[in-house]
Design a protein around this nucleic acid. Structure first.
Length: 325
DNA sequence: AAGACGTTCAACCGCCTATAA
DNA sequence: CTTATAGGCGGTTGAACGTCT
């Protein structure tokens, strides 16, 4: 019956598309409350949602998942995105793994709508922060390189190794194990593990508290949206409520090896990042998260590192791979 | 006031990898 | 080993909204 071609991700017949309604959101959220995220294929069947599994997953990970922050990127976050994009290329999921409250989609959107433009402008005015821009030939991976995941990981690893080496050589900070930083991007490219293997039960209590908030949200949903708000008004209230009340949320995430366990006031994204290690408990490999943070701290907060980074970026991939293989 | 134009971002598409059968 | 499938990712789209003329 089935040909060799790519199988459809879901049965297209009768599948609803487009924006999610509050009712659908409630349905999805309450299902996940009970069963946890994952096994997305079963979600439409069990919830009665006329959505494909992918759509459900996307809706959850990019919008409904507790602990995500929307809009209002801080300067720190912006800088991080710029640096990480230069380092990792357009690997939004990997980048998002360093910004626990942000989704890859959000970061991608922010990059495309704000940062790209910004960087282009600063590029034209001749003032460059030492950041390699998207579209430049020295960019790590986004353009002319193969798109296979392992290749991208390899590239990232190489870049990280370069950076670690540079840090080690520059010696302007105590060398805190920067040489073992290669693990994270790899993990970050395998966020699925967080949703599949995450011990959901461990976080169930925090889930529960989250969903108490969600039920309160539902009350809000029943009210007419705030007139001053735009279409996502009820969603905003949802997000705010969740974010403001899930200080111990062990959110499940398919975005990366992270969760949010920190207090989430509006501008605490970066603090959150710095305390990320406190959240790794849900995802095993406890040592893996901490180390790259040290690295990142070095080069994100040390302006000198930008220059170093630029130097690294100017190294061609071929150079480095030639040495490695 | 209204139409044109620009921007934002939620959601979709199609490809990829991992894995189960 | 091959095939089928689920889940994940990045690129792209288009409706909604904002700003300009």
């Amino acid at each position: 019956m089935h040909n060799m071609g790519r199988p459809p991700c879901c049965d297209k017949i009768g599948i609803k598309k487009g924006p999610w309604t509050p009712e659908e959101d409630i349905s999805l959220v309450s299902y996940i409350q009970e069963h946890g995220p994952g096994n997305w294929r079963a979600v439409p069947t069990n919830t009665g949602l006329m959505r494909c599994s992918k759509s459900c997953r996307l809706r959850w990970t990019n919008y409904l998942r507790p602990g995500i922050k929307r809009g209002n990127f801080t300067e720190h976050e912006e800088k991080m995105i710029i640096h990480l994009q230069a380092l990792l290329g357009n690997r939004w999921a990997a980048i998002a793994s360093y910004l626990p409250q942000r989704t890859d989609n959000d970061i991608k959107n922010y990059w495309n709508t704000h940062l790209k433009k910004k960087l282009k402008q600063s590029d034209q005015s001749g003032s460059d922060e030492g950041v390699d821009h998207e579209g430049h030939s020295s960019s790590s991976s986004s353009n002319s390189h193969p798109k296979g995941q392992w290749e991208r990981r390899l590239q990232t690893d190489i870049q990280m190794a370069k950076k670690a080496l540079c840090d080690a050589l520059s010696l302007h900070k105590p060398a805190t194990a920067t040489t073992t930083t290669l693990v994270v991007p790899d993990d970050a490219t395998k966020p699925s593990s967080s949703s599949h293997h995450q011990p959901y039960n461990h976080a169930s209590s925090s889930y529960a508290s989250s969903y108490e908030n969600i039920s309160r949200l539902m009350e809000n949903w029943m009210k007419p949206p705030n007139s001053t708000n735009n279409s996502p008004g009820y969603y905003s209230s949802f997000s705010n409520m969740v974010n403001n009340n899930t200080s111990t949320t062990g959110s499940s995430s398919s975005e990366g090896a992270h969760s949010t366990t920190t207090t989430t006031t509006q501008d605490q994204g970066f603090d959150c990042f710095l305390t990320l290690n406190s959240s790794k408990q849900y995802y095993g490999s406890p040592s893996q998260t901490q180390v790259p943070l040290t690295l990142l701290e070095n080069w994100l907060f040390d302006d000198g590192a930008a220059q170093c980074h630029e130097d690294l970026m100017n190294m061609s991939l071929e150079e480095s791979t030639a040495g490695l293989f």
